[in-house]
Design a protein around this nucleic acid. Structure first.
Length: 849
RNA sequence: GGGCGCUUAGCUCAGUUGGCUAGAGCAUCUCGUUUACACCGAGAGGGUCGGGGGUUCGAAUCCCUCAGCGCCCACCA
């Protein structure tokens, strides 16, 4: 025992975590209603950021709360190989070593990244532990674990067999920097000011020209046609004619297509099937050749000598210069248009043609929309559901292929003799295989990360194999950032419905981004990144947790506040010092027996804690963490520390004091697990772990006694208020007429209001306190009284105003007839009290005259 | 072009079916070394809830409108 004067979190946290973990406290108990949540696999490629800390805090609060409530709770940890994200990090490492991906084979790269990730993973797991996550580490899943890969293959196979997977040559979003294609949602669209160039294409057999408009002149080398609207009178007569493609001697045809908007630009569009999704479609309709002029590394190919090898930007400049030289530019028009950018490198995305594996999304999305509309999943905040439905309604087929070595290989092989012949085969370690006498070459691409993490809930619970955690599927709570609504939540729902026929989770809680203290997005380049581990070491893990959840609502991006973390630390210290007081009072060997309310304060504190408990329950049951945290904070600080501990100095109800401490620790445990467990371990009457305790139960108390303590508080507050507003620093005596409440709580009132003495009197004198139900006076001198007169008059004026407002309300027949009865009743009571107060204030002023 | 969100105290933000005198943390001011805690205690000041209109007995909360800020989605060159 003998606790230090202040709580030093670093001294206790690692030991407490080890105590929990080694005791098996994080493992599901196998009894009770299941409650489960899975860690959104943090990327296994670096340090946790403060968003992870928030995520962990929210989930762990829910898990600890449910565990204490008797649920069979499990928090399943995970780690994500985070294919592309990790790849980018690793490629930078390679660069530092002066190497590139092309120096190694796929197998070599894979094993190098594996080692790299393995190292990072350990670090990440330690950080999750430091955050206090009560995760069941034995059930940890890594997205490259065998069972994950096997399930991913099975799912892929099922899609393949049922015709939902197809291999297609299509325009894909291509990152020339990382040399891989992206999914649609990985492209950042930005509205920009650009230029629309009007370029003349001379007619072949006639005199004249057709002027097309384009924002990408450098792609003209890939043009396969010029398109106009079939009904456009300006061009109707030219349809079928040929033009000469400038800077080349190629002839291309003028075609008609509904796609062209006659009102835009010149009404004539160059068609470049290999480098624009719309043109690709037009090209398909008209059977146009696809001439690729931008290579996968972002440089020009299949173009005249002078442009070959240039990157896109330079090619554009030189093309324009060449066109200018031939006087073919008719106009330059400023334009606002959207440009797609690589979300990772910030460079423009090139639409390029590539053969990729696609998953047909429409049937999957339709099922998802169905269950969402049926309300099978509850969203916090609720509005996100409709956003998701909207997304699903407009979904496109999903490009599953990534041209990076780090990931789950796509288990497909292509016949070397027939490039349309693809077969499914899991033997991805072989470069070639022979099946039925035919030789097949391995697909070198890997899966989009989200294809594996999209199956997370049923993989982590081993639902498909009916593993030991299968009872936890569908999971109870999926908690993640709002930014993952489309790319993760949507996919989990679709894939889960497809594979299991069930929704993957019942509740979805989406938290916003944690911004810096000035509401700016945190980024390395701005240098405003807050490292959660630094917060933990400076203020403690609990403090960080409390600070993160305070005043934070779902779906809303909100600033991080060190002040709130400090407030959290102070709260932990408060709990610590409440314990020190109790320790002092109870001694080293205290063993409590049944607690029982005796004093008014006893009844009151039981009521307060019961109230707080119910508020916390209501809030946590609907994931209103901030509200729960606030209720806890005030129950502990205001009620327990400021009133009950103070009252305990004048009384000895040790059993109840111990109960109050226990109850406080239990209520606080989900929010501040480390400090509460640390304290619990010091209490001589416990030899258990707090994490395994049950949620507190209230004990009998009496409402009337509790309310009477409220009266005592009013007397104390009024005496304090009046005394501090009086001149000088005098301590005053309190006089009162026959009043059993004051009588019985004399000592308490005296100490709390810092009075010299509290005495019964026959004759009132001094300053009458503005109390509705008690006659009490501060024993002050005439002179002080005189100086206080102004205060009294102000008090009287405001009370008159309040009375007028109350009377106005009560005189309104609509109010008395339509408002709920208890509100009307309350107004009446208030009016009476205010009126009594006025009487007192008046008589007080009368004396002063 | 659609969709969503935000605007409440000096700062950062809560405020769930409309209902006590609109709250919190920090900051500010005044007192205070009462042995649990200065990572403290007591008290105080500070908001016409972005503007305007409407519904209602009653609006920060619901509806309309205007203004400012932010986000997401969308293959018009």
């Amino acid at each position: 025992m003998n606790l230090a004067k202040a709580y030093e979190p670093n001294q206790y946290e690692p030991n407490i975590y080890a105590l929990w973990e080694t005791s098996g406290a994080f493992k599901p108990k196998g009894v009770g209603e299941p409650f489960s949540t899975v860690m959104p696999p943090p990327n296994a490629n670096g340090n946790l950021h403060v968003g992870h800390a928030l995520d962990t805090a929210l989930k762990d609060i829910s898990v600890r709360y449910k565990r204490m409530k008797g649920f069979d709770a499990v928090y399943i940890p995970g780690a994500d190989h985070a294919g592309f994200e990790t790849w980018v990090v690793y490629e930078k490492e390679l660069q530092k070593q002066g190497k590139s991906r092309f120096d190694f084979t796929r197998e070599q790269l894979y094993s190098q990244v594996w080692d790299f990730v393995d190292q990072q993973r350990g670090n990440m797991e330690l950080q999750v532990r430091a955050l206090g996550a009560s995760a069941s580490w034995d059930d940890m899943v890594f997205t490259l674990d065998n069972k994950v890969v096997e399930t991913v293959y099975d799912t892929f196979k099922k899609f393949w067999d049922e015709g939902l997977i197809y291999r297609g040559e299509r325009i894909v979003n291509y990152s020339t920097k990382y040399q891989t294609s992206y999914a649609d949602i990985e492209v950042d669209h930005k509205v920009e000011k650009g230029t629309l160039w009007h370029i003349a294409y001379p007619l072949v057999d006639k005199i004249g020209e057709v002027v097309i408009a384009t924002t990408r002149p450098e792609t003209l080398f890939g043009d396969a046609a010029v398109a106009v609207h079939p009904e456009d009178e300006r061009y109707k007569h030219l349809i079928g004619n040929k033009v000469i493609l400038p800077l080349t001697n190629r002839e291309i045809t003028i075609i008609a297509d509904e796609y062209v908007d006659p009102a835009f630009g010149t009404g004539a569009v160059k068609i470049t099937p290999a480098h624009d999704p719309n043109d690709f479609e037009v090209g398909k309709r008209h059977d146009l050749p696809r001439l690729q002029v931008i290579d996968f590394d972002g440089t020009m190919i299949n173009v005249p000598q002078q442009f070959a090898g240039l990157d896109v930007e330079h090619a554009r400049k030189q093309t324009l210069a060449a066109l200018q030289a031939q006087e073919l530019i008719r106009k330059e028009e400023p334009i606002e248009h959207t440009v797609g950018y690589d979300y990772k490198s910030g460079l423009p995305i090139q639409p390029l043609i590539k053969e990729q594996w696609f998953l047909r999304m429409t049937p999957l999305a339709a099922k998802a929309i169905e269950v969402l509309e049926a309300g099978e999943i509850t969203f916090y905040p609720a509005g996100r559901k409709n956003i998701l439905i909207q997304y699903l309604k407009g979904i496109h087929d999903w490009n599953l292929s990534r041209q990076i070595p780090w990931g789950i290989p796509i288990p497909a092989f292509q016949n070397v003799a027939d490039d349309t012949d693809w077969i499914f085969n899991k033997n991805v370690d072989e470069k070639t295989i022979v099946v039925d006498g035919k030789t097949y070459r391995r697909e070198e691409d890997t899966f989009d990360t989200w294809f594996s993490s999209g199956q997370w809930p049923y993989i982590t619970t081993d639902y498909l194999d009916n593993g030991p955690l299968a009872r936890f599927f569908p999971t109870s709570l999926m908690e993640t950032g709002t930014d993952l609504l489309d790319r993760w939540i949507a996919r989990m729902i679709m894939l889960s419905l497809y594979q299991t026929g069930k929704v993957p989770f019942k509740d979805v809680y989406l938290h916003g981004m944690v911004l810096d203290e000035h509401s700016q997005k945190m980024s390395k380049s701005k240098g405003n990144v807050i490292n959660p581990m630094e917060m933990v070491s400076e203020y403690g893990s609990d403090a960080l947790r409390l600070g993160l959840i305070a005043s934070r609502s779902p779906g809303q991006n909100q600033a991080f506040s060190v002040d709130r973390v400090i407030a959290g630390r102070n709260f932990c210290n408060k709990l610590w010092n409440i314990t020190r007081f109790a320790e002092h009072k109870l001694g080293d060997n205290f063993q409590p027996s049944t607690p029982e309310a005796r004093s008014l304060a006893d009844h009151w504190i039981i009521a307060e804690l019961d109230n707080a408990k119910q508020t916390i329950e209501r809030a946590l049951d609907s994931y209103r963490y901030a509200e729960a945290g606030e209720a806890l904070y005030h129950a502990i600080w205001d009620s327990v520390a400021d009133w009950y501990i103070e009252a305990s100095k004048d009384q000895d109800n040790l059993d109840l004091l111990a109960w109050v401490l226990d109850t406080s620790l239990k209520l606080a445990h989900p929010f501040a697990p480390f400090v509460t467990e640390t304290i619990w371990q010091t209490l001589p009457w416990h030899n258990t772990l707090l994490i395994n305790e049950t949620w507190p139960e209230t004990i009998p108390y009496n409402d009337i006694s509790a309310a009477e303590f409220g009266q005592v508080q009013k007397i104390v507050s009024e005496a304090r208020f009046v005394a501090t507003s009086l001149p000088g620093n005098d301590r005053y005596g309190l006089l009162y007429f026959e009043d059993s409440l004051i009588e019985e709580n004399k000592e308490l009132i005296k100490r709390l209001a810092k009075l010299n003495e509290v005495t019964q009197t026959e004759q009132a004198k001094g300053l009458r306190l503005a109390l509705a139900n008690h006659d009490a006076w501060l024993d002050v001198s005439e002179k002080t009284l005189e100086e206080h007169k102004g205060n009294l008059e102000m008090r009287l004026a405001t009370t008159h105003q309040e009375i007028a407002a109350l009377e106005g309300r009560l005189n309104n027949k609509n109010y008395t007839s339509k408002a709920p009865a208890h509100l009307v009743e309350e107004s009446r009571k208030q009016l009476e009290e205010k009126q009594a107060l006025v009487e007192r204030l008046l008589s007080e002023l009368e004396i002063l005259k």
